[in-house]
């Protein structure tokens, strides 16, 4: 058991955990940050993706002790960071995922959104192939990735003031751009 001082979402948090506990276990079961999910146990699915010093890594294959000294960002950190940066609502990636239907069961999406956020931080205007490659370590079983890609492209379109994607089914449905709720 060791005392760990972790920087999570900008907070310095002290907690104690045995050496063999992963960052995912400490985030979820010690710190109550259950937004990071566990899907495969061992690095195969990406659901536990968090940002360590801005880069997407798998919290299930990172020891909690190894994260000491790094800045950890979980899904719970995106909205507060956005508000602190002077924004309103939620992070544009979160908003686009919600608006575009990317959140079906939502289980893989905290990891997916963090990967997308890291991508856009590094490259504000990636093309579709670049987005697919960047997201290719995050498995989703609901969406067929289509609305996820639309969401990322919608977030890009908003930040670059360009045209958002218009999937085929929207051609017949005039109401799809209305977001009343």
């Amino acid at each position: 058991m060791r005392v760990l001082t972790l920087d999570v979402n900008g907070d310095r948090l002290e907690t104690a955990a045995p050496d063999h506990w992963t960052l995912l276990e400490v985030l979820r079961y010690k710190l109550g940050l259950t937004g990071s999910k566990q899907g495969c146990d061992k690095g195969d699915c990406g659901a536990c993706t968090v940002l360590v010093d801005g880069k997407p890594v798998l919290a299930c294959l990172t020891l909690a002790a190894e994260a000491v000294g790094s800045k950890v960002t979980t899904i719970e950190g995106l909205r507060p960071a956005h508000l602190e940066g002077g924004g309103t609502g939620v992070d544009p990636v979160q908003d686009a995922f919600d608006r575009c239907g990317a959140l079906q069961c939502g289980f893989c999406q905290p990891g997916m959104m963090l990967t997308a956020r890291a991508l856009l931080n590094e490259n504000p205007n990636p093309d579709r192939t670049e987005i697919q490659k960047a997201l290719s370590g995050n498995l989703c079983r609901c969406t067929g990735y289509t609305q996820i890609l639309e969401a990322v492209e919608t977030a890009i379109a908003e930040s670059t003031e360009s045209e958002p994607p218009r999937p085929a089914w929207t051609q017949d449905h005039p109401h799809v751009r209305e977001d009343a709720l």
Binding site: G43, G46, T49, K55, P56, V57, L58, L61, T62, T115, K133, A134, S136, G137
Partner: peptide
């Protein structure tokens, strides 16, 4: 090698 996160690690 593997996927993006695993290459970062």
């Amino acid at each position: 090698v593997a996927g993006p996160q695993l290459r970062t690690m």
